[in-house]
Structures are given as C-alpha cells and as structure tokens.
Design a protein around this nucleic acid. Structure first.
Lengths: 134, 134
DNA sequence: GCCGAACATACCAAGTCAGTAATATGTCAG
DNA sequence: CTGACATATTACTGACTTGGTATGTTCGGC
C-alpha cells in the first residue's frame, strides 16, 4: 500500500530510486527521459516517482502533457540528522567524505561546508530520530 | 537469503535496526539486553544482528556464552558519501549541517583528499541491480 | 556427565515491494 | 472530433523480508 508515507530511509533503500535522485540532481527530467536512462518500463518509472513524490523527495512541474520532475532534497535532512551522531566516529576515512564534498557543484559558499570550526559551541544536538514504523 | 551482503541503505531501512545502532552507540550490549530493550523475541533480535553483522555495521566480541555487540560505523561512510552531494542543497537548514560539523572532534585538516575523483557517488556499491532480475 | 543459560539457526505464516501488462486520463495536432 | 503521444493508475505475479515458534549448540556450574 502506498498511501502510507515512508521515511527517506525506506525510500532510498531501493538503488533505482537513488539513481533517479542522482539523475535529477543534474537537471529536471521528464518521465520518458528517466525511463530511458533507467532501462525500466514507463509504469515502473512512474511508480518509483510516485514513491519519491509521496516522500517529498521530488516535485512535479507539468508542462502540457509532459511532467518535469525535479529534486526536492529537504527530506534528506532527516537522513542526515540521523547520521550526524555517528559521523565523528569514522574519522579515519574522512577522505571519502572529503572526496565527495569535492564533487559538489562549485560555487555557492561551499567554504561554509568546508571549514570545520570545532570551537563552535553549538548546544542543540536534537538527536531526534522519529523512529516511526512502516 | 541472508548470504547476500546488503548495502547500508537497505539495512537501515528497518527502524528496528536503526534503533539497535542507536542503542549500541551508547555502549556495547549483549543480545539479551537488546532483546529486552527492543521488545522483540530473542531470535528476532539475533536475526537483525545477523543482518547488521553481515553488513559490517556491528562487531561481536564473545565472552563465555555471552556475545557483546558493538558498533562498527565504517559502512555508514557509504551512506554519508552518497548524501554528500545533496547536502549543500537544503541550505535552509544549514544549521543542521553546521551542527553535525561541530560533532567532529577536531580539525582533521583532511590532508588526504582526492585519490579518486569520480563523478558518481556509490563508492562501494555498483549502481546496478544488487542481485538478479525480478 | 548433567543441567541451565545465552545465543544461533531452521522453519513457517504474513505482509510488502518490484516489475510487467493492460488500461485510463489528458493534451496536442490536424 | 479523431488519432497520436506522454503519463498515471490498476491488477497481478513472484520474490523477498519480518516476526514468531521450535530446535540446536556452546559454555559454565554442579
């Protein structure tokens, strides 16, 4: 049943859905375009898009009979929030993280993401995981 | 079949497994302890631990007939790596990013950075199907 | 050696999900 | 209006996952 909204964790468990997001990260795409890239049938693609839409991870912009899907990354913040308390632990392989930080599209103040002010006494570690059920 | 190793994404899609990791983040625990906290049966707990162990997310330290499970956060780096290119996007919640940066213990000036400047994420996981067709 | 504790595995029933095919809706062109 | 195209929805099947009960297996104590 798709009526129940799923958490980003469950939604992203599917490699196909991660690929869709990766494709949409570059530019918005139509369903046919995505279908072609994914090698799926058109209904299969639409179903994945439906799940992503219900989870708030993509947004649709209709243009005539074409639907342009674009990324909507806000729900990923929940994933990031869950991951946050663990992040300091694998400091040994920080290179991996760094490497992908470098893949970020340039511009914008990526320096803000780069700098690492450990002197920042930020109290609010909400640690809030929703811990809901399926 | 549990023989196939799953990606951290699939493993963490289960709320119970995330809870196990959250519990192990505080301190190592025995199976009975986890069973009690999770409200599951002992075999149920063992099965989840098996999945987590296969994914490399936990490690076992046997002590007589007791098994102490402890967190093994390295595979979470894959999740983090996938997430990284998206992180700059939800600039509205930059506070979250900043907050997690603050959880890092110290500078760790990221000396080793780019030995694999790949365009795509998925460092450890082939982006194709995980197993066969359906 | 025997018994109980702690944990793992095997097996089973139920729910869920991915993929495909068939069909419906809606829009543009003529 | 009609036909072609783009997408959504539904129905169905097969595979996988989850949680439970029952049954090993290993270890320590007696």
């Amino acid at each position: 049943m798709f009526g129940a909204v799923a958490t980003p964790f469950e939604v992203l468990a599917e490699p196909t859905r991660r690929r869709i997001l990766d494709l949409l990260r570059e530019r918005p795409r139509s369903v046919g375009e995505l279908t072609d890239e994914l090698g799926l049938t058109q209904p299969g693609t639409s179903k994945h898009l439906r799940v992503l839409r219900d989870a708030g991870l993509v947004r649709v912009r209709p243009d005539a009979q074409r639907r342009w899907y674009e990324l909507c990354p806000e729900p990923l913040a929940e994933l990031d929030a869950w991951l946050a308390p663990y992040r300091w632990m694998w400091a040994g392989r920080l290179d991996l993280l760094e490497q992908h930080l470098n893949t970020m599209p340039n511009g914008s103040d990526s320096s803000a993401a780069r700098d690492n002010p450990s002197d920042h006494p930020e109290p609010g570690q909400p640690d809030g995981r929703k811990t809901e059920d399926r």
